[in-house]
């Protein structure tokens, strides 16, 4: 979750959000269309393995599903 404590904190969160948006967009564009879904699946698995515990992973899956 994003927590915003100050103007500086907000600036940092926005900069991070921009970085995520642009990096992921450009990464998707570097893989052939036929590999796009598999690439995104690999990427999510890696991100989850390295950065999410079981509760976080379950919560994020639920959030993504509900946000459609």
């Amino acid at each position: 979750m994003t927590t915003v404590g100050s103007a500086h904190g907000l600036e940092q969160s926005v900069a991070h959000a921009e970085f995520v948006w642009r990096t992921v967009s450009e990464a998707i564009d570097t893989v052939p269309e036929s590999d796009r879904e598999a690439f995104l699946t690999r990427f999510v698995l890696l991100a989850a393995l390295d950065h999410l515990d079981a509760d976080e992973l379950t919560a994020l899956i639920a959030e993504a599903r509900e946000s459609r």
Binding site: V24, I28, D29, E33
Partner: peptide
Amino acid sequence: TPGTHGYAMT
């Protein structure tokens, strides 16, 4: 005006 598939998806 996302010009690529990646930008359109995100």
